[in-house]
Design a protein around this nucleic acid. Structure first.
Lengths: 218, 218
DNA sequence: ACCTGAACACCGTTCAAGT
DNA sequence: ACCTGAACACCGTTCAAGT
């Protein structure tokens, strides 16, 4: 039984980021404060600033880590299958770390952005999209994937403490059904209540893929 | 010449929201504080809380106002043209009020969400999408539109005070070109630097529309 | 009913001082 | 070099007191 001093190991950038991710996962964006961080690491704010420039950098590094872990492995299969795989791995990573979504869509060309661009872009090339449209088509895919993930993550988070997802969806559905002059919202309120985020996300990917294939190899 | 007392008119929810929008437009998300608000309205925080529940409600009402103003008019033309019109009006509204994007993608089924759903959904119906896929297809379109708008707005905002858009894009392009093991990012760095947000956004809409038409009326 | 403004608990960040 | 922790300027929100 080793004697446990105030900290088990020396402070480091890695340990700080690790603690930040734990706080973000547990309590969302608002859970990451210097107070919570210093308590968890048994140190003071000054020590953290010695390893990290500011809160923004901490969030960027944490985001990058999640993206790298999700997309480390190369995608396999046909370009379409590979793109579905990339999208799903991002979807699942954001499902596990919902705070990543807002961060990524706020800086899609930094933090984890370039890696997503690279993984998606290579499959866009493999799909036979002409070079002059590489950036446009890759960006459209990224915008859909990150946009859908961000909106799903936000909806999952909106559910107040105690209110489950089903309850939240039920409340929104009732609101929609009560909207005067919104016949479409009324008509799809039940579909909304019963929908599956993952299936809906995949349907979107397939729609965009159909569009790309139709446009360039049709 | 009327004598000008401390406030020209009585405080009201409308005047508060109006002031909030002005602050948000001028200085972004961070520009909306109760201090700035009370100074602009020549009052105290308590007075504002008498008309508005909290900052979140203020942001939601402000967001709703921008969306309503953008989508008031019914869309005209073929379903495809109408959808392009809706998307562009949202794009322009978010270009003028970038803070709306994060707000909308954080609560796409509240604030302005239902109106967007309604406007987009009716055109999805007109497009001939079968009823069981109304919610899915409409949501995919919304996710793309809001996701792309949010990412464009964030990129426009990232540019630090003094740093223009061209400079910012140039810096990102240089970063991409310096990334080892990212051949695709390097290959499209110049396309990124020279791209036009609006044209890119429209290309995305057309890709999704092509996918929908291909899937359901192909 | 509407407004005032001091007070509260919290936030990110800095910095002189220690080892 | 690395860490401490008090201090600073700021934040959203509350509430007793006024009109």
């Amino acid at each position: 039984m080793t004697s446990r001093t105030r900290r088990a190991e020396a402070l480091s950038r890695e340990r700080i980021v690790e603690a930040a991710v734990a706080l973000l996962d547990a309590d969302g964006e608002g859970g990451l404060t210097f107070k919570a961080l210093t308590e968890r690491l048994a140190t003071g704010p000054g020590a953290i600033y010695h390893h990290v420039a500011n809160k923004g950098e901490l969030l960027a590094v944490a985001t990058d880590g999640v993206v790298v872990a999700a997309l480390e492995a190369e995608a396999a299969g046909s370009p379409q299958d590979a793109l579905r795989g990339i999208a799903l791995r991002l979807f699942d990573a954001i499902d596990a770390h919902p705070w990543v979504a807002a961060q990524l869509s706020a800086s899609s060309w930094q933090a984890g952005g370039p890696l997503i661009l690279e993984r998606v872009g290579r499959q866009v090339q493999a799909l036979g999209v002409p070079e002059r449209d590489w950036f446009t088509v890759t960006t459209v895919l990224m915008q859909y994937v990150l946009g859908a993930a961000a909106q799903n993550a936000a909806n999952a988070r909106v559910a107040a403490p105690g209110v489950g997802r089903a309850e939240f969806l039920g409340e929104v559905a009732e609101t929609w059904k009560a909207l005067d002059g919104y016949p479409f919202a009324r008509a799809v309120a039940d579909q909304m209540r019963e929908h599956d985020d993952r299936a809906q996300f995949l349907a979107g990917i397939d729609l965009v893929l159909t569009g790309i294939v139709g446009r360039y190899t049709g």
